[in-house]
Every structure is written in C-alpha cells, then in structure tokens.
Simulated assay, not measured.
Amino acid sequence: MMNKIKSLVVAFLLISVASFAQGNDQPLKFGYTNVEYILLQMPESKQIESELKTHSTQLENQLKGKYSEYESKLQAYEKGASTMDKTIREDKEKELMNLNNSIQEFQRSAQASLQQKEKSLVDPIITKIDKAIKDVAKENGYTYVISNQALLAGPEDGDISPLVLRKLGVDPAKAQATPEPAATKPAAAKPAAATSKSTKKKN
C-alpha cells in the first residue's frame, strides 16, 4: 500500500500557496512537509489499508479459482488427448486457450480495479490534507510550502508537519515515523501454463 500511496501524492511534491504571499516589504517564508507522512498518521490510513487488503484478497481468490479450473482441464486434456477424436481434441484445445486468455485479462482487470479502489479511498484524504496545509500556510504566513522530499537543507522550524497534524486533529506527539516502503504485489495468481503443449496435436 505504501508504494501506491506515493504514486497518488506525487502531485504534492511542490505545493504552492503563493496566494498567501506577504507584502513586498516582508521576506518570503518557506515551509516544508511530507504529504505521505501526514496521511500515514491519520486514522483513515488504517481503514484504507484494511479495505485495500480485503479487495485484493477477493481478487486473488477469484483469480486462483480461474487458474485452478484451467489447470484441472489442462491435466484432463493431457491425460486423454491421445485417445480423443480430432474434433473433440481441437475443441478442448480451443477451450484451454480461451481459459488462458481469460486469466490474463482478469489479471489486467484486477490490477486496474485495485488501483481505482485505492484512488477512490485516498483522494478524499489527500484533498483534506491539501486544505489543511494551505490553511496552516495562510495562518502562519508561509509564502510557499514544498515537499521535504525535494528539500536538500532547511531549518527545523520550517517543518510545518506538526501544525498540519494538529489542524487535522492528530496529536503530533503520537505520530509514527514513515515506514520503509514495502513492495506490494497486485492481485495475481500463478500465471496460466503456456498452451503450447495443449495446442500441439497428438496423433
């Protein structure tokens, strides 16, 4: 999930709040934060992860069922192909090819479904965080707020994350460090075996 969230917050690498710029006689004030970090501190984050896990498991189970059907029919074909009538054998081979194509198509659809599910869950929270960041910037006189992922150096008092967390109702003292991203696999099952065996006619 963490890797996926990163892709959804990429637009926040530079958050401009120039509309809150101070007068010409006042210096520019820069702040920085990390949208992913803020999101992970919010109560909604655990609910998002739970819902994505449930959705992913459902997709995986359905895909495994499809593969199990394919494997069962492939084994039956290989066992009886030598004694099958040519017409029946060709029909079985066509069925196996269709099942294999169906598995591959489902894998693509499952990935798209998981991404859409995640987007629908994360987007409202990102919007909420965006508003909080802009509110904090306006209330504290920040001209610009940038992502700390793009920051090479800066003062500690430029980090507005604690202010944003308070604005969102989260206690900064209870905030957890951003975990190392773990590679998350999309819903998938063992790919269907190549049908070259099944389509090789036996005489």
Rank of each mutant, 00 (worst) to 15 (best):
N3F: 03
N3P: 02
S7Q: 12
V10I: 07
V10D: 08
F12G: 03
F12L: 06
F12D: 15
L13A: 11
I15F: 03
S19Y: 05
A21E: 14
G23K: 14
Q26N: 04
P27R: 10
L28W: 07
F30D: 04
F30S: 02
T33K: 01
V35L: 07
V35Y: 08
Y37F: 11
Y37K: 09
I38R: 02
K46C: 00
Q47S: 09
E51D: 14
K53E: 15
K53C: 02
T54H: 14
T54S: 15
H55R: 14
E60L: 03
S68Y: 04
S68V: 07
E69C: 00
E69H: 06
S82N: 10
S82D: 13
D85S: 11
T87I: 07
T87Q: 13
T87K: 14
R89V: 04
R89D: 11
E90H: 07
E90V: 06
E93F: 00
K94N: 10
E95A: 13
N100M: 04
N101I: 07
S102C: 02
I103Q: 10
R108M: 12
Q111R: 12
S113R: 01
S113F: 01
Q115C: 00
Q116G: 06
K117E: 10
S120K: 11
I129L: 07
I129N: 07
K134M: 13
D135K: 12
E139T: 11
N140L: 04
N140S: 06
N140D: 10
G141R: 02
Y142S: 05
T143L: 03
S147R: 03
S147T: 05
A150V: 12
A150E: 11
L151Y: 06
L151M: 14
A153C: 06
P155S: 08
P155C: 02
D159I: 01
S161F: 00
P162Q: 02
V164I: 10
V164F: 09
K167R: 11
L168R: 03
V170P: 06
D171F: 00
P172G: 05
P172W: 06
K174H: 01
A175Q: 04
T178N: 07
T178S: 05
E180R: 04
A183D: 13
A183E: 14
K185D: 11
P186D: 02
A188K: 10
A189N: 07
A192I: 01
A193S: 13
S196A: 14
K200V: 01
K200L: 09
K201V: 08
